[in-house]
């Protein structure tokens, strides 16, 4: 059982969350028409042995999307922040 420390809700079982995949992809701008950039964003992933930064959504909680740094070998959770940039910077709640 991974325990994720949701910044809003505190430590929770991973079964309260929905996994959202690699958080390090760069999403092209909405009006970006470049097929190669969209292809890379949608299909290409690294599969690191070690630290992985990924998205999880706290669906059985505050429903916030979170950015989680997890070690894929030890399952240690190294960091959890809100995915939304403004919230992560501590700007209001």
């Amino acid at each position: 059982m991974l325990i994720l420390h949701c910044p809003f809700c505190g430590p929770r079982d991973h079964s309260e969350f929905l996994y959202g995949g690699d958080a390090r992809r760069t999403r092209p701008a909405p009006d970006d028409a470049d097929g190669a950039r969209w292809h890379d964003y949608v299909f290409l992933r690294d599969n690191p042995r070690g630290t992985h930064v990924e998205h999880w959504q706290h669906i059985h909680g505050c429903r916030a999307w979170l950015t989680v740094t997890r070690d894929t070998v030890t399952h240690e959770i190294l960091a959890v922040t809100a995915a939304r940039p403004a919230a992560a910077a501590g700007d209001g709640r």
Binding site: C62, A64, G92
Partner: peptide, 22 residues
């Protein structure tokens, strides 16, 4: 109220914090 808290108003309305900005 802040994360994880609730506050009861004089009117009896209770406000609960349920998520960031919510």
């Amino acid at each position: 109220p802040g994360p994880g808290e609730s506050r009861e108003a004089v009117s009896g309305t209770v406000v609960t914090a349920t998520g960031p900005g919510r």
